[in-house]
Design a binder for these strands. Sequence first.
DNA 1: AAACCCGTCAACCGCCAGAGG
DNA 2: GCCTCTGGCGGTTGACGGGTT
Length: 294
Amino acid sequence: MGRAPCCDKKGLKKGPWTPEEDKLLVDYIQANGHGSWRLLPKLAGLNRCGKSCRLRWTNYLRPDIKRGPFTSEEQKSIVQLHGIVGNKWSMIAAQLPGRTDNEIKNYWNTHLKKQLRRMGLDEPPPGPAAGCPAARHMAQWETARLEAEARLSLLSSGAAASTTTITATTTTSASSSSTAGPVAAATPADVFLRLWNSDIGDSFRKLAAAVVAAGSPSPGDATKKDAVKQEAAPAGDDSSAASNEVEAAEAVDEYQMFLDFAGEELGLFHGRHGGFSLFPPVDLLEASLETAFK
DNA sequence: AAACCCGTCAACCGCCAGAGG
DNA sequence: GCCTCTGGCGGTTGACGGGTT
């Protein structure tokens, strides 16, 4: 069995935090930083375990936390990212500034999951573990990346006239949002490139590369099923191979449905005749850029 | 008005991985 | 290499509030 819970000590308070406790915690961290979470409660005068303090701070008291309902943009991002990385809430949270993993997890479980189900889509296979990334999806991402770079390059020339500059960090670092100019930070291209260069993009590329290497032209294709199967269970035995294959094929089909849903119902992908774009049509984009450059 | 149901979300629990001795 | 400690993560729980019967 695992270690004993850290809050087993007698007398340590559990349950909802009071405003007084919140104040003690915030005051202490703002003055001293959190340092060792284990020692913090004692130093801050709190009758809580360190873990509880850390959770309260990271999920609720941190000053950079954005409260309030999720925007449709955030919602789309969550759906998309969940399709890529599955239940990696911390990864998803890293792409949504001001949102915590706990908040996103709750939102997924209470809103989005049901929303997808209501629309006739069972939960899509949760990310890499199900081995879902189709070659088509990989191609979509690659196309989107190229488009993002192209748009960013256009933006750079457009922005050159203004006082704002777009730095190269947008294409090289996932954590560069603060170093990029405000215009770049506001564009879809920047958002996508940051995502592409983050852990999420990395994880997606690794997995997709495995599928592509195995050869996988279309959903339901036998080769893809094998690739998916191997990805999901590299040391799989032959006896379960047949059922695995069927499950894998179903997973791929469901995932494709999920992608279609994300594109058509949520407007996440703006498809064009077999092509694909993460971004709105050019006219809409231009309109938003005009606003951005004002 | 009371009882019940259901959705939401803060908080907890158990496990894991990495660092350090 | 092994053990312990710590921080972090994802799954689950339970209190609470609003809606319905």
